[in-house]
Design a protein around this nucleic acid. Sequence first.
DNA 1: AGTCGTCAACTAACATGTTAGTACAAAGGA
DNA 2: TCCTTTGTACTAACATGTTAGTTGACGACT
Lengths: 230, 230
Amino acid sequence: MTESSLNKIQNLSGSLSQRVYLSLREAILSMQYPPGTVIRKGAICEQLGVSRSPVAEALARLSAEGLVDVIPQSATKVSCFSMDEIREASFLRQALEIAAVEKVTQERTDEQLAALTRNVRMQALLVEDKDFVGFYQADEEFHTLLMNFTGFNGVSQVLDSVSLHLIRARMLVLPEEGRPAEAVKEHQAILTAIKNQDVDAARQAMKYHIGQLIPRLLPLEESHQEYFKT
Amino acid sequence: MTESSLNKIQNLSGSLSQRVYLSLREAILSMQYPPGTVIRKGAICEQLGVSRSPVAEALARLSAEGLVDVIPQSATKVSCFSMDEIREASFLRQALEIAAVEKVTQERTDEQLAALTRNVRMQALLVEDKDFVGFYQADEEFHTLLMNFTGFNGVSQVLDSVSLHLIRARMLVLPEEGRPAEAVKEHQAILTAIKNQDVDAARQAMKYHIGQLIPRLLPLEESHQEYFKT
DNA sequence: AGTCGTCAACTAACATGTTAGTACAAAGGA
DNA sequence: TCCTTTGTACTAACATGTTAGTTGACGACT
């Protein structure tokens, strides 16, 4: 692998710093750069054909988000998981998703309900066809739709930023037999509550749904010990 | 004002970038740099006696947090308020504080309850003495205590980062007659719910408490039109 | 007089040179 | 043999030089 494992930044838009940031972030979240990987500014510069300034800025942002740990004057590493961080991220995600689903349940329009219904139907079809990649995307879209239906444009990005560690850790979890089908059922429960404008039911359904991730992540601390903080 | 309105960075710790970041952030949040203020890298460099690199990095972080708007190749300005952003920040804060108070209500220890009780008592005394600055600090401490009692170390920082626009806007609200006393009562209601381990009451009390801020911020859009996005 | 095009001044963005702190390894002493 | 020490190689952090894009004002043309 002499060639870069980074996405070509030519395909991205924005300033160089922005493109470098997106490229590195993608590499980290997709586990192409697994936890513990040493990131050297020089190597990144060479691979992407840019100078050290935009790379430094990108790494500063990743550091602020907790995706990389900078050891001053020494090295920069992709940050390791810690079960505490994962639990915290799950807590934050739960808080945000619950608040969002409560608001949407109360204020939903028929169009919004229709869009969500369409999405969940699609999920069911994709699982039936065993198209798990497609289901994964539809799953993400379901949650993004909910966030956008709150009427607040930024909450989706905030959710992403607090869920970073979850997204990354989830890449390690093999798709368990039957889990996608369960997830669809949970989404349907949420949808039903939204349809009925039952705030308590929506909250409970969402709480349960988000809570399902942590137990599936727990075994990782044993099975991928090398990715965790000691 | 030839002399800097920025805090001296010598008093801060960490890397130069970090210190510049903290200094600028403080200036923005305290409204020393009101919305719309043009920030020139050169001027900051001169005032703080550093070169452009750490300033650039600091501004990049502030930009990512939404405190400054960078106009490419042209200028950097302290971002203006928008009522949408403020509503969104309030929504996010409500989501986090509610989740936190629910968790603390369920899992609280006697020591935690005692610390909160002590804090609220202090609040009442400070209001009685008309020490509103002291009350403001105790108020903040109350919420910080709650966050820390969730057991998650980072939630307090996440709360700060989503509440940035609220903190800044609140600087414009004059202390209304009687409001601090009301706030103490609301804190007492939250405390009582925590004491009784009544999750629903805690949620309702917190929701009400956080919700009180928005109506008090609404008049700003008229009275300080110059600080708002057009 | 009003409008459009041009140009000069200024800025952020980027590239590159310089400094200083860290880590690791080899050598010397206990 | 193990611990300490010292020196070297490497890195992030910082300073500074360079580029390119934007803005606003001035002047020419309508």
